[in-house]
């Protein structure tokens, strides 16, 4: 099932990105060098499993947050926002709580 080599244009954080048809959003973000997610401690994260299991590739697609980008194909005109921030005002506190827990 070879893919037709037609291009798909989408935006990543407002910047125009062009990929081959059949490319997942996760692959497009890796190409663009954009982390998908900021972790609870504030670390940049990117896809790990590539197959919809690890949830590290969650991004906001067309305004909807927590979408697994490795399971979604790029569509023309799609707007992707990343990294999604998981940090909350409590992130610092959580860190210290782990140490004493």
């Amino acid at each position: 099932m070879p893919e037709p080599a037609s291009a798909v244009a989408l935006t990543v954080n407002g910047a125009l990105v062009t990929v081959e048809r059949g490319t997942t959003v996760a692959a497009a973000l890796l190409m663009a060098g954009v982390a998908t997610r900021t972790s609870v401690y504030g670390e940049p994260r990117a896809p790990l499993c590539g197959m919809g299991i690890c949830f590290e590739c969650r991004v906001t697609i067309d305004g909807v947050s927590h979408q697994r980008s490795c399971q979604i194909l790029c569509e023309p005109g799609m707007h992707v926002t990343a990294p999604a921030t998981e940090s909350t005002n409590n992130a610092e506190g959580r860190q210290s709580s782990h140490r004493e827990a």
Partner: peptide, 27 residues
């Protein structure tokens, strides 16, 4: 996956994980 220092860095992936991403369009 087994945790080791740095395994959470971007571009550290599963073996099948990288393969899947390449098959999904990553050059």
């Amino acid at each position: 996956f087994l945790p080791f220092p740095g395994w959470t860095l971007p571009n550290v992936m599963g073996a099948g994980g990288l393969d899947a991403l390449v098959r999904a369009g990553l050059p």
